[in-house]
Design a protein around this nucleic acid. Structure first.
Lengths: 209, 209
DNA sequence: GTTTACTTGCTTGTTGTTAACAAGTAATAT
DNA sequence: ATATTACTTGTTAACAACAAGCAAGTAAAC
């Protein structure tokens, strides 16, 4: 509160929060435009209105910044998922997850694109974002597995399935659809896919044919 | 045939073929070890027994070399696929494709890994290998679609499906499974997945329940 | 209330690595 | 003998990462 007038007069904590956010926003824009390897730390800092060195200074490294972005995006997706799935279990929960994902991609396509770009990098043997991707997938598979096991316990899901294998295949399906959608957008119509995928799930997993 | 003894005395064409192969082999080894971004052109040339500059000289650029590798791997996969599918159509052809893929991954895991690493890079907006990946996927979807349409014509496949959407989902499923397998190998058991996936296909697509 | 010591947010200088290209050399083909 | 070809070495520009520095802010001492 020392300088009234021109300067906004922020506390130091507010300043870092502001510049962090500005750089994350800039990084997202550049990620969508030029991809991970085409995005430079200098460009991020400068587009955010700061110097070329700030991004490294704050996030330690390029991988550190990308990890922060990946974490934020994953968090937003999990919120959408939790709202849609709620307390559902079994095939209902999986169908809700499909709807949630279609909704997420429609409402926040940039988030979906960014997650896909960052997680694709994780395929590289030395990728530093590998851990985040692996943890995310592990978590998702565990959730789906729990839905299936509860569904079996409730008698809604066939008892002769391998819950883990089915969960992995379900997550793999969503991964693959996103991958193809990002690569060839006109190929994948999420709405057309939704009903077909849900029908397939029910036919395959429901105990009540 | 001028220098008997020490030098192997090869024609120029033989020499380039030899060095090209040596560099592609070296690049594959390094790709599996360190990923695409961790692999340097200098390391490729030197591991192949040549200078740091030869890889650039021959393939024009890093992307050019990777494209050559991607093309070679895709070609080998398509050969395996064609042998397994043969003249099958409809759901039978799709089941054969699943078997072929499981066989390919088991017989040539390195090929599968390399293809996955290279195609993952294609997710990047500025990727130069994007075109190859898109073409490959387009080709595969077209094939699956043709199988489905023939199956519908023959009365083996339900006539009320969207062949294109189903084909995209089938390819997406295979992409996703590979992606997860590369990222978390102990997660994905191709053999456990095979039967389940084939059963799901039949239940979903066959006209004869 | 003013001066002094310290912290913090950010910038600029620098280094090592890398892809890409250009210029060169020596072996091969004609 | 001359031209072509296979390959190497020199060089440049871009980049990530780090270190040193600067200026604005903050708190303590007098």
């Amino acid at each position: 509160m020392s300088k009234p007038g021109s300067a906004p007069s922020l506390t130091q904590a507010e300043r870092t929060a502001l510049s962090d956010r500005a750089m994350i926003d800039a990084a997202c824009t550049l990620l969508l435009e030029k991809g991970a390897s085409g995005t430079t730390l200098a460009a991020i800092g400068e587009r955010a209105g700061y110097s070329r060195g700030l991004a490294t200074y704050r996030f330690g490294s390029k991988a550190g910044l990308f990890a922060a972005i990946g974490k934020a995006v994953s968090k937003r997706w999990l919120e959408v998922l939790n709202v849609e799935v709620g307390v559902k279990t079994g095939v209902d929960a999986m169908c809700a997850a499909i709807d949630a994902y279609a909704r997420f991609v429609k409402a926040s396509p940039d988030d979906a694109r960014i997650q896909q770009v960052l997680f694709s990098e994780a395929s590289s043997p030395t990728s530093e974002s590998k851990e985040l991707a692996v943890d995310t997938y592990r978590h998702q598979v565990r959730d789906v597995m729990a839905w299936l096991e509860q569904g079996i316990a409730d008698g809604d899901v066939r008892a002769d399935i391998d819950a883990h294998a089915e969960a992995v295949q379900f997550i793999a399906f969503l991964c693959g659809v996103t991958h193809l959608w990002l690569l060839v957008p006109d190929f994948v119509d999420f709405d057309a896919m939704r009903e077909s995928a849900k029908q397939r799930l029910r036919r395959h997993l429901s105990s009540t044919q």
